[in-house]
């Protein structure tokens, strides 16, 4: 499956990129604020995004979706420019780290409030349908299992179901919401109940298994494109990092880490794809070298670019210049 190879490359690139971000964080000084990575969740993230087409589909990534972002086609530079807060990036130093996107290009920029992005994706699809240009495009977004406890998520899932919107919702059940274990997060036996409760098609998948993820999302995206309404996919996995780089995740018990949930999806995908003769050792080495060079080049580029200047900032929260108090010209 060609898509598995594409997804694998995004996983590998994301892993290397996030290692770079984590080391910049540890070194201190250059990255303002925290670093939030998706180690262990790359297969689930990229497994969805490889099925999306930039320019046609909507993708609303969340906190652990670096791999999905790369698979969708977010430029590497957007990551560094946003983390470094330079004005050339999409957020221009006004927001940082994972809170980035290009809404008009089908990639809304998440706000921190968990659960609140799904209804925005719904609205993008809703408007396209109203304007007669939805075609067979779809929207996709993701959320952790903790985020599914929000009212916003439930309202939006129900809304998507009522409107039969072609939206794919990827729930990464990584067993912990920050430090909170699932036993304190929900009492239903299975997160797929969330789908059943709203009349939505649900799927369960081993989130550490790339080929399984690619194939489940392939089915979900196909059904959404064909008019089957919202599709909710729950992946079981573990985050192999802290919530952010400030967090040592010591609350995750060793027996969970050593369970199948704790399998690292990246080497597993590599061995799977090699066993199927889809990739070779040499290719993987070559990709690694290429990615590392690209990452270094992007970091070097972003590092040269200007950081925001409070004296040049227009301090304007409204697009209508004439309505900004104290500022009456554009």
């Amino acid at each position: 499956m060609a898509q598995c190879v594409t997804a694998f490359k995004s996983m590998l690139q994301a892993r290397l990129l996030e290692e770079k971000l984590a080391s910049l964080y540890r070194a201190g000084g250059r990255i303002v604020g925290g670093v939030y990575i998706g180690k262990g969740q790359e297969a689930f993230s990229a497994g969805l995004a490889v099925h999306l087409e930039k320019g046609k589909d909507v993708y609303g990534p969340l906190i652990r979706d670096q791999a999905g972002r790369l698979a969708f086609g977010e430029p590497l530079l957007d990551t560094f420019r946003t983390y470094l807060g330079v004005i050339t990036g999409p957020m221009r130093g006004r927001d940082g780290n994972v809170h980035r996107g290009r809404p008009r290009e089908g990639m809304p920029a998440m706000i921190s409030h968990l659960g609140s992005l799904l209804s925005v994706v719904n609205g993008m699809l809703f408007a396209r349908r109203l304007q007669g240009r939805l075609g067979d495009s779809v929207g996709a977004t993701s959320l952790g299992e903790g985020g599914t406890s929000t009212g916003a998520f439930h309202e939006a899932l129900n809304q998507a179901a009522i409107e039969k919107l072609p939206v794919i919702i990827a729930i990464a059940n990584n067993q912990f919401s920050y430090s909170t274990p699932n036993s304190r997060q929900f009492a239903c036996g299975d997160l797929l109940d969330r789908a059943r409760g709203y009349g939505v098609q649900g799927y369960a998948v081993d989130g550490t298994d790339l080929t399984a993820c690619v194939s489940v999302f392939s089915e979900a995206v196909k059904r959404a494109r064909a008019g089957g309404g919202p599709q909710l996919v729950v992946g079981s996995l573990l985050r192999l990092s802290g919530h952010g780089e400030h967090d040592d995740s010591s609350y995750i018990p060793d027996q969970v880490k050593s369970s199948p949930l704790g399998q690292d999806c990246l080497p597993y995908a590599e061995s799977q794809l090699k066993a199927s003769d889809l990739i070779t050792d040499e290719e993987v080495r070559k990709w690694k070298d290429e990615f590392l060079m690209e990452i270094d080049a992007a970091l070097a580029q972003a590092s040269k670019e200007p950081t925001p200047d409070p004296f040049r900032e227009n301090w304007r929260a409204l697009s209508t210049a004439g309505l900004v108090e104290g500022q009456f010209e554009a």
Binding site: P103, S119, N122, G123, F126, A127, A152, E155, A156, Q159
Partner: peptide, 19 residues
């Protein structure tokens, strides 16, 4: 539906698309 959060969220998404 009686979902004020999702109502406004949908409006924002629609506005992104030019509505």
């Amino acid at each position: 539906p009686i979902s004020e959060d999702a109502m406004v969220g949908l409006a924002v998404g629609a506005a992104i698309e030019g509505a």
